[in-house]
Structure formats: C-alpha cells, structure tokens
Design a protein around this nucleic acid. Structure first.
Lengths: 238, 238
DNA sequence: TCATACAACCTGTATATACATGTTGTCAAC
DNA sequence: GTTGACAACATGTATATACAGGTTGTATGA
C-alpha cells in the first residue's frame, strides 16, 4: 500500500466491489479523480490501467471509464493464487491433509523441462478437501537451492505465506499448462474417482523476481469439480 | 503501429524472438533505449511494460530487463485468439468444416447468463480438423443486434477477420470458463470419441470496446488433444 | 585483509505540461 | 426538421524533470 497509485487502485476496486460505483456507471473523469485524491492525472491513469487489466472497468475514449460486471470472476484459478488465499476469499469449508514431505528429485519429463543436471527438491503432497470431498491433489517440488527445509506445520497451513512472509522470497511469475489425463491408481483412490474417469492436470513452474526457477507444481483435479475462470483482453498491443 | 511505443514494443519483441537479444541477456537500459529510438524514457517504459505483461522480459530493479525464455508459450489458448490466427502462427495442417448456420436463440442456461429477454443470434457450428483428426467442435452464437447476417464463406474462413476487418467491430475482452463434461451423442460421434470419454468445454462471452455483449461461444475439445498454456504474473498490484 | 563508504548506474514513482483525438450536446444556418 | 459547425469534455500519447531506492564495483580506511 506504500504506493499512491496502488492505494488508489485498491480504494476504487473496493468501491466497485461494494457497488458504491455501480455496474454500468461511469467513474469520475481522470481529472476529477486527480482532484479527489489530490494527485496528478498520470497517477490516476496508472490506477485505472490496473483496474482495466484486472477486468474491473472498460475505458471508452471520449466518454470515460465504465464499471464492468465481474460477479463471475469469483474463482480465479488463473493467475497465481495459493489454495489458502482462495479458501479465505471464498469462505469455503475446506481443509488440507498433508500426505507426504520428503526429499526428491524433480521428475523433469513430466514437466517437459530441459536441464543438464538433476534438480534436488523438497516434495510435498497434499490433498485439498472441500465439504468433506477430496477435490484436488497437489504435488509441489520446491527447489533446494531456494528453500532448504520445510516444516510440517507450514505445509499444513500455506507454503506461499511462508515463502513470502517468513523467508522474504518474492514470487513473480509462472507458466502453466492444463491437460486431461488418465489417473494413476493412487490418484483414483485419493480423489475417490469413478472407474475410467479422467483427471484435469495443471502443471506449473514458478519463478522469483530475479528469474530463478523456484518451484514445480502438479495439481490433479477431479474433473467434475474443476472450473477454471478467466478474463482476457484482446491484443494488449496492436 | 501508429503509436511510438507499440512500434518499439514490436521491434523489441521481434528482436527477442529472433534471438538478437538472447535469452538471459539484459536489454539496454531505459535511458539507452530512449536514445536509440530517439524518444523519451516514459515511452520506452510503456513498451517495456507491455513486454513484461506478455512474458517477454522480467524487470529487475537496480539491474535492468532480462529476456525470458518463452519457447513454451507456443499454443496460447489463453487470451482471445481465433482458430485461424492460431492455425497461421502454428503452421498446422488444419481445416474447418462448417456444419450449420442458422438463426437460434442463445441457450442462456448453458452460459449461466441472466437476461430478461431472449437473445436472437446467428448460430454457427464448425468442426476443426487437424491432421485429418477432428479436434474441436465450435458453437458460436453471434448476437443479431451486432451482426444481422453471416455469409457461409465467412464461417468457412474466419469470423474474427470478418468482424474486425470488414465490419469494423472492435473486439475488446472476454470471460471464459473451462470445465469437463459428459458429451452428447452428437459430440461423441463428431469428435470420434471413445465410449465414456469426457470432453473439455470452453465457454466464453465476448464483448466489444463499448462493452456491448457480442458473442457467446462454446468449444468442445477432445480431452486427449486439449492443451491450455498460460503465463501469469503474481499480484499486478500490491 | 577485510569491511565500510561512496559513486555510478539501474529501475520505480510522482508531477507538470502539451497536444492529439474521440464523444456529446448546443445552437445557428439552411 | 435536418444538417453542420463548434465548444466542452473525455481519454490517448509524448515529453521533461525530479527524487527515491536497489545493485554493483571501486576506493578508502582501519
């Protein structure tokens, strides 16, 4: 919150979420907002630009900024979000069961990743349970180069909160792929799948601010519970 | 291309793609780029900002802008892209078979969309074939309010090129959901599915620049051919 | 030798200004 | 009544300047 424009962004986002600026209405003009917040127009424009890319508003030249209806973006599997953050924002009755923490090498073939040497990692396997039903099986490989040891309590709570809060690691970006695959016997059993039922597999590689590779993740989703919601803009640059 | 910063963006993106700026190297500093392109630092920063959000570079404070490895973003189902554009950029041996063009009302339940009245639309059903295999079944509902009639040749070629090129419609943003569902008999037959094989369904709503709802799309994917690739940044705003 | 201080570079943020360009409503001319 | 010119206001783009703060290598001092 230390930046002016991020403070303004959050203030406007809050007011949109709580319908102080109703869906379909126009925000005050950029110059008016600049007066309101006692800042320059450029700063306002940075905040509006962030609202634009996050789907809060649509800017229309010559008219103003319209508030969009974003009720459907309530389950953002897109972006990088931890299960705990999702859980908190959705008020779901959910829990996490830690199945395994041990040292393993990253199975590079699975992630289609080229490397000269093996990558040592801490392997964490967790089952996500919502309303007493197993929903997701998460397999994390956290590279030893970045984090040498992970306490059990951290895995039961939130890895991201630990990495960012305690260790001061700055998670920056990730690449993901989503595919549909046949489950293993273990996955079938853990997720209580029907026979011949496929699973949705989300595999991602996470990087830090200084571009060091940090983590591989494999999330096995029950197909009937999988729901990916996305907001996309066409051609950010023409 | 009329904007300075978009020209600079494309120039830099090109040079990154063709390894003139190799992966892992640093771009010239912002002030150097400003001199190179004969412009101000702010303009350079807009171009770099676009490269950042599109995953070309990572900016590191106090050091510079590193070129990232983006070889894996070669099948961007994310964003809004038409099948023809995908086809062209991937050099795939693919074709489109138009199964049906007729007037229909949008099946609002399917898209979980609330509306007081029915929405009249042109319904286009197309089968996407790659290497003689049916891969995707596309069902488009283009609202009559925006486009009254769609020639057959357009559906066989590219709807987007027609809407943007000929009609001057400005497609701006979309919301998408991805789920796994049981196919209908028709879908099973058209996509040559195994018995009891599920399908991946991508449903999207597309909007124009002035925020008018324009199109509903339902894409039925063969699960064994489905591959969604994404690039995501954590917390654009803190 | 080692640590501290500092200069030189980088990106991040904030502000001010100017002009271009799209949208809307008004008002006069036809 | 319709059209056209125009003013008022909106966002879009480009530039200049200033300072904050992170990174690196070098020089100075104990």
């Amino acid at each position: 919150m230390r930046n002016k424009y991020s403070a303004i962004y959050h203030d406007l986002a809050d007011k949109i979420i709580h319908h102080i600026y109703p869906v379909g209405s126009y925000l005050p003009s950029e110059t008016q907002l600049a007066q309101l917040y006692g800042t320059s127009r450029e700063t306002i424009r940075k905040a509006l630009s962030a609202l634009l890319t996050n789907g809060f508003i649509q800017k229309i030249r010559g008219k103003g900024s319209v508030v969009l209806n974003l009720q459907r973006f309530n389950f953002p599997v897109s972006g990088i979000t931890s299960f705990k953050e999702l859980n908190q924002s959705q008020h779901m009755n959910s829990s996490t069961k830690v199945l395994c923490i041990e040292d393993q090498y990253v199975p590079l073939e699975k992630f289609d990743y080229q490397s000269d040497s093996d990558l040592a990692a801490t392997y964490v396997e967790r089952l996500r349970i919502v309303n007493d039903e197993p929903i997701v099986l998460d397999r994390d490989y956290i590279l030893k180069d970045c984090v040498s040891k992970i306490p059990y309590e951290v895995a039961a709570d939130s890895l991201y909160a630990y990495f960012e809060g305690k260790l001061g690691l700055k998670i920056s970006y990730a690449t993901k792929t989503i595919t549909v695959e046949h489950p293993t016997k273990e996955e079938t059993q853990l997720l209580a799948l029907e026979p011949h039922q496929d699973v949705v597999v989300v595999r991602s590689q996470t990087y830090l601010e200084d571009t060091t590779l940090f983590q591989f993740t494999e999330s096995i989703h029950r197909p009937d519970k999988f729901n990916f919601v996305d907001f996309a803009r066409r051609q950010k640059i023409n």
